[in-house]
Design a protein around this nucleic acid. Structure first.
Length: 311
DNA sequence: CGTGTTTGACCCGCGC
DNA sequence: GCGCGGGTCAAACACG
């Protein structure tokens, strides 16, 4: 609701130990809601929350120029499970995650958003039954990512239908509302540009996918993953970024790994990471039964020294 | 024709 | 109670 963003920022700031406003300006700050403790609290991994419960593999793929991902050292998160990270360098993209109410709303990860959907419907019809009396409307866990990107809508492998756009107060850029097109999936996401840095796209996921990732371009077929041993193609001129969901240990991707189930006992605390990926890789894997196999995917995509580059 | 986008209206929650 | 702003709906429209 209104103030939501502010609340998120407040949470983030609290997590980072800085004021929301300061935090928003601090490049490279990456709070660790993706800390192991955070995972324990919610009993839900980051990927799970995004609907990747069955595939801890590749994560994001932004087939467009620009994107890089930077992860900064983290500060132990307080109660809040909402996190944001901020861009560290002009040439990098940052991702952040936030999950307001995540701590209290993760009891049933598999449960989609029917409740909220119906509440919305009831709301539309003017019925009061859509909302439980005396009870605040519950929200799905949310995760926000700040991504340095030229385009607003980042390709993540799922199909989204835009259902609204609103001007945002104190921001020259509108906020777009997307909903997963899968019939039984109520996952939503909001996409907006940062008013402070127009190159930063803030994507907020709400809810959890309860279906495999389609990875199907319109009218196309699911994009096959590269063969296990295949040499990953070189990144396109413009970089996309991919969230490694496995091999993260090697990739020093603390905030993700910490949300991954064992044995991905991520122990490293990275100082930064920049990931890129070819255009047709997707955030999720459509075939969950495919054994983990992209060993080296990101390793090949991510220069080994990048992880240390950010100081 | 199916799918996705645009856009104005509507509703709700919150702060005052 | 009122106004503001966020979030959603759904008709109209665009496109392949």
């Amino acid at each position: 609701m209104m103030m939501e963003k502010r609340e998120e920022e407040m949470d983030v700031a609290a997590a980072a130990g800085v004021s929301p406003f300061a935090a928003d300006q601090i490049g490279g700050i990456f709070d660790t809601a993706f800390d192991v403790r955070g995972a324990d609290k919610s009993s839900q991994g980051f990927l799970e929350l995004l609907g990747f419960q069955d595939l801890h593999r590749s994560f994001f793929d932004i087939p467009l120029p620009a994107p890089t991902v930077e992860v900064a050292p983290s500060v132990p998160p307080p109660e809040s499970s909402e996190v944001l990270n901020f861009p560290a360098t002009p040439n990098s993209s940052s991702i952040s995650s936030s999950s307001t109410e995540a701590a209290t709303d993760t009891a049933d990860p598999a449960k989609p958003h029917r409740e909220e959907e119906e509440q919305g419907k009831a709301k539309k019809t003017g019925s009061k039954e859509g909302k439980k009396k005396g009870q605040k409307r519950q929200r799905e866990p949310r995760f926000a990512f700040k991504t340095k990107s030229e385009v607003d809508h980042l390709e993540d492998g799922y199909r989204w239908r835009k259902y609204g756009q609103k001007a945002v107060k104190n921001s020259p850029f509108p906020r777009s509302y997307y909903r997963c097109t899968h019939a039984t999936c109520g996952v939503k996401k909001r996409v907006e540009r940062s008013s402070e840095d127009r190159t930063v796209v803030v994507t907020t996921y709400e809810g959890q996918h309860n279906h495999p990732c389609p990875i199907v371009p319109r009218g196309g077929h699911p994009a096959p993953l590269p063969p296990l041993a295949a040499e990953p193609p070189p990144p396109p001129p413009g970089l996309g970024f991919v969230f490694p969901s496995f091999q993260v240990k090697d990739l020093h991707f603390p905030y993700l790994t910490s949300y991954l189930p064992p044995p991905l006992d991520f122990q490293h605390v990275s100082t930064g990471i920049v990931a890129s990926a070819p255009g047709d890789r997707r955030l999720c894997n459509p075939t969950a039964d495919v054994p983990i196999r992209d060993h080296g995917l990101l390793q090949d995509l991510i220069p080994s020294d990048i992880g240390k580059k950010e100081e």
